[in-house]
Design a protein around this nucleic acid. Structure first.
Lengths: 255, 255
DNA sequence: TTGCTCCTCACGTCACGTGAGGTGGC
DNA sequence: TTGCTCCTCACGTCACGTGAGGTGGC
């Protein structure tokens, strides 16, 4: 016969856990000895290991209580279900390992943006765009993805084909340099003109009305986001009334 | 700018969780709009995803709070540690899958007894011992393993070599048949004589004092366990004063 | 006698869940 | 006007952990 401490130690749980299982009605209260101590037989070891095996597998105590007294068929069905849940949990944990690895790798844009957009940001870095501007572009994309995920494929397409145009790349770099200019700087007007003159390579292929309607929400979102832009860019935006977002992720425009 | 619902939905958490992170100081409280609603920018999305990635990986919120403001080196050290914990958790879950599979497989003695003892029990079943007697033997072993694990290898050895002796096997089966006899049945005295006459094959090789001292605790344990035996076996025990446990797991005796 | 185990309350913990009661936006 | 989202308390949940205060066994 075992004391509660011997039972608990052998099964690898605390005495508090054993008492908790008594309280919840999972494990039968054993007889007491002369001094009121609980005395356990071998069956209690078997019962406790069963309880622990299920509990360690993630089964809630209330469910374990029901399963203990369930017919064999219901029990084995439940076990199959628990096994499926464990498999899923293992897959999830493997996924979490990949995600914290992304976290460690420099902060990991992969965590909060789809791969195509990460590729665009890397391309910007590749042509020499400053990290500050890349961050502004990144933040714009994050908001677009969060609020209007349905426009993302189209916008990515436009941005990608724009990036293939050397003129666009030059304009983007020019906006990048203008980041800290005085809003009264006369060169901003020139830059605004150049932006207006640049034509998106893909823009001729699309039907205007669809695009306008589809982007309405996203454009208004970008406009509110523009509040956090540097002064020079806000001025640039005022100088280009057709283009409310000079440095944004919005399709076909330099930033 | 995002409302709390939009932010939460995009990151895949509840609004309650976001407010909880504000309360715990993990996520900065953003500015409010005219009607007192929280308004989030892209950085909040980034911060929340970071928090969630760590939390999903099992890092306590208090630790996440410290890590967010930690230098990069401490951060990556912590990530490595978290990754190790995840690896361990995955191994543990794989182990739990194996254990619930044992549970489903007929209740699984493998769960609460070492393999060599399971083999002994299966051998008993193989020679035709009743399931009731096997259960008594099983329960005896469970108590021995729990209370005196150090004697187990020796007792297993003795029991295994005894089982190789045809005379022992016949005696064991005889005790099995005697399970429900009347305690006054005269055949019990004959059986007790036969038990006394049987000599363990390995007993001549051992030094008596060592054995006696080493088994003292276990023997007294078996004696208390004997209280749960059927009446005929208790009588058998009285008739064999040298052998207090006729049907027990104790080395060298028939059961 | 000392240290260890056992006993029974009963409050604490962790990361939120879940109404309760009320207001703002479309 | 209706339904949905937002707001702030504040108590509830799950599986125990952790003393508090006291007694029994070696």
């Amino acid at each position: 016969m075992l004391t509660i401490g011997q039972l608990a130690a052998h099964v690898g749980v605390t005495t508090r856990a054993v008492r908790h299982y008594h309280q919840r009605g999972l494990l039968a209260e054993p007889d007491r000895d002369a001094s009121g101590y609980r005395r356990y037989d071998a069956q209690a070891v078997v019962d406790l290991i069963r309880i622990r095996t299920l509990s360690d597998a993630g089964v809630p105590l209330a469910r374990i209580k029901a399963l203990i007294h369930a017919p064999p068929e219901e029990f084995s069905d439940a076990i199959a279900e628990v096994d499926g849940a464990l498999k899923k949990k293992i897959r999830d944990l493997a996924q979490h390992r990949r995600r914290i690895a992304d976290l460690a790798a420099g902060g990991g844009e992969r965590l909060f943006l789809p791969a195509e957009i990460v590729a665009i940001l890397d391309q910007l870095r590749g042509i020499g765009v400053s990290e500050r501007t890349v961050q502004i572009e990144r933040d714009a994309w994050i908001l677009v993805v969060a609020l209007s995920p349905e426009v993302v494929p189209e916008w990515v397409q436009e941005k990608t084909s724009a990036m293939a145009d050397p003129k666009f790349r030059r304009l983007y770099l020019a906006c990048d340099e203008a980041l800290d200019w005085d809003p009264a700087d006369p060169r901003l007007a020139e830059l605004a003109d150049a932006l207006r003159q640049w034509e998106s390579p893909g823009s001729a292929d699309r039907s205007r009305p669809d695009e306008t309607l589809g982007n309405l929400a996203a454009v208004s979102l970008m406009t509110s986001h523009a509040a956090s832009w540097p002064p020079a860019w806000r001025r640039l935006s005022e100088l280009s009334p057709d283009h409310p977002e000079p440095g944004s992720a919005a399709g076909g425009q330099a930033g």
